[in-house]
Each structure stands twice: as C-alpha cells, then as structure tokens.
Design a protein around this nucleic acid. Structure first.
Lengths: 154, 154
DNA sequence: CTTCATGCAAAACATTTGCAGCTGG
DNA sequence: CCAGCTGCAAATGTTTTGCATGAAG
C-alpha cells in the first residue's frame, strides 16, 4: 500500500498550509483547496488572475472575490508572500512565504528567487545607520532574464 | 549684491531640475515651479497628496491631475524617484532620484535613506546566481524608527 | 444545525484620460 | 500667436465590501 504522507516537496508544502488552516478552524472548501494546490505547486509566482483562471478550469462558478479572500487568509497565516506592485500586477509566492530577494524580468515578467547570503550584511548596515529595528524587507532587482537577453540581441 | 547662483543644496537641486526642464523645452508654469520647489526642498519623501495640499496653499485652484502630470514628467526626466506601494500610498524622493535602499517606519511612515555600501555585493551575488542583467532595484526595509521604538516601550 | 464561505454586484479608491479654455515663451 | 499646460470631470482597473444563499463540520 502506498504511503499517504507527503513525499514530494509540493505535497509537503501543501500539507504545511493545510495544517495551519485546520489549526485555526478555518473551513476547507473545494475552491480553497484548489487555490492552495495552485500556490503550493507553482514555481512561477502567479498573479491573482492566473490563479483565478486556473481555479475556474475546475470550478467554473468561482468568483474572483473568493480568490482574493483566500489569499488574504493565507497572508494572515503567513503562508504566502505577497509581492505587491504599485500598478496592481501583484504576484504570490506560496513556496517561501518569508522575505527574500527577487530577480524580476522587466520584459517577460519572470521572477526568480535565488538563495542569497549577503542579505544579512546589508540589513545590518541599514540597522546601524538608521537605528530602525526591522521586521521584514522587500528586495527586488529588475532587469532582463537570461532568455530575454538572448532575444534582444537578435 | 547677492550671488544668484545656487548656494544651498536645495537651491542646487532645484537648479538641476530646472535645467532638465528647460533642456527639453517643457514649460515652466507657476504650478510646476511650486511642485518642483516642494520636491527639491523636502527631506521627507512626500506623497502626492502632501504635495497637492502644499501647492494649494499658494495656488488654490490647482488640480490633483496637474500634480500627477508634473510627477510623470519628472519621472520621465529621471529627476524624481517614485516609491510606489501596492496600497497606493506612493512617496516621492526628489533629492536622490536613483535607486537606493530605504528604511520605512511601519508606524509613523517616516522614511530614511542612509548611504549604504553593501548594495553592490548583494547585487553582484544576485547577478551571479540568476544570470539576469539588472538595470535598477528597489530595496525597502520595514520596521520601527527610533522614535516609535521609544513610544512603544511606554 | 450553526457558522462560516461563496458568488454576485456594488462600492471604494488612487491614478489616468479627454477636452475646452488658458498662457508661457 | 500656438503648442503645450491646466482644471474639471468622467473613465479606468484592481481590490474590497455587503448581503443573500449554500455548504462544511
């Protein structure tokens, strides 16, 4: 018989989120489960609209308000990181729901989040020079991804 | 007789902006001049509404559209840095109109921009690990400013 | 069963746009 | 003079909210 415990990273991440939902006595509706699956599975920082369109493939009556409400719930539980942009093109990271640097392609909008070691040093210098006590940060680097660099050389 | 060349940093900054405006044959209306003065003089990263209210002290018929249009012009000329936030509480830096880190108080909204040396290292590490070629960045650290730290201890 | 979630539509809100009239150079 | 700017109001586009209905636990 197959093991029903999480085996892949995606399953594990989904299980983490479900645990938080249950731990706080929120309800697990089919729509919510679909949204959680998308966020736990996607590597590409989907937008609200991306999520909305995908959920509607499975539950065609789903409203966009439900997507917004579910995301708000996950933000409250600290299980999703919102990358909000002033033009409203917000993106969501369900993999690593804590602050970390992002590389954002200004042409194709691809977002990467590499492991970076030199954040602490910057944070420390900021703290020393301002006297602030920081609780989170937002570090975005904008430019062309490798693929778009190739395409622009043509 | 007094020297009419810029003497204070604020006057110098205003002169820089005026030079750009004239160099591109844009018109210098009283409303624009008032907005430029505010941006060149303020240390506190004003919002559109801050600017709007202050301009209206001198020119009561000024519309908010003019403030937006003037800021758009300055952005195009690279003479103001827009700190856009997803909730619409945008702030503007007319002093140093190029990317640099900001410390932002989550309580009183005070923004500081210290001189920071360790940005290049972080940027270099990002470049190495993603392959992106970056053209600008946005580095925000959120927390309590020294004053709000004191007040919260009471 | 009771409470919470959904779905629809309306509201909210900052920013942008269209246009007639005005004005800086 | 006249191209560009102003001010007003309407439009835009995303996110939020109110409420009646529906379903999770």
């Amino acid at each position: 018989m197959k093991n029903h415990h999480p085996v892949t990273p995606k399953e594990e991440r989904l299980a983490q989120i479900l645990a938080k939902i249950k731990g706080r006595d929120f309800r697990l509706t089919p729509q919510r489960l679909a949204i959680l699956n998308i966020l736990a599975a996607s590597e590409d920082h989907p937008s609200v609209d991306d999520i909305y369109k995908e959920v509607r493939n499975r539950f065609p009556t789903t409203s966009i308000a439900t997507v917004y409400k579910t995301i708000a719930l996950l933000k409250e539980l600290n299980e999703v990181l919102e990358l909000g942009f002033p033009d409203g093109s917000n993106r969501y990271d369900g993999h690593r729901p804590y602050p970390h640097p992002h590389a954002i392609c200004t042409r194709c909008r691809k977002i990467m989040d590499p492991e970076i070691s030199s954040v602490d040093e910057l944070s420390e210098e900021m703290k020393k020079k301002t006297g602030y006590s920081f609780s989170f940060h937002r570090l975005d680097f904008f430019g062309l991804c490798p693929e778009c660099q190739k395409n622009s050389r043509k």
